[in-house]
């Protein structure tokens, strides 16, 4: 299983609509709306890098998405 964080910058506009589009994407496990340099942090859970590309592509196709930065998780420690 490949896990990745996708950091998203949105254009000012209809954030709620962009979020509801993201919530429909199957391979997204978590969506966090954040305050700071980015607007949304998404955690994707996919089986292959090809699927990760599809998820990133789907996000970029959302109208108000300005830029995405993908960070693939290599190692993780969690509670």
């Amino acid at each position: 299983m490949i896990n990745a964080y996708i950091l998203i910058n949105l254009k000012p506009g209809d954030t709620d609509k962009a979020l509801s589009e993201m919530r429909k994407i199957n391979d997204i496990a978590k969506i966090s709306v954040v305050a700071g340099e980015y607007d949304v942090v998404v955690r994707a859970q996919v089986k292959t890098l090809e699927q990760l590309l599809k998820v990133t592509n789907k996000i970029q196709m959302i109208k108000d998405v300005n830029k995405t930065t993908t960070q693939v998780i290599e190692k993780e420690i969690a509670l």
């Binding site: 896990n3 990745a4 964080y5 950091l7 930065t69 993908t70 960070q71 693939v72 998780i73 290599e74 190692k75 993780e76 420690i77 969690a78 509670l79």
Partner: peptide, 19 residues
């Protein structure tokens, strides 16, 4: 990870090194 309050540490490949 030893810092209290940190619930998850991810070593990542990309623009950053850790999330």
């Amino acid at each position: 990870w030893d810092v209290r309050g940190v619930n998850r540490v991810c070593a990542v490949a990309g623009h950053y090194d850790f999330i």
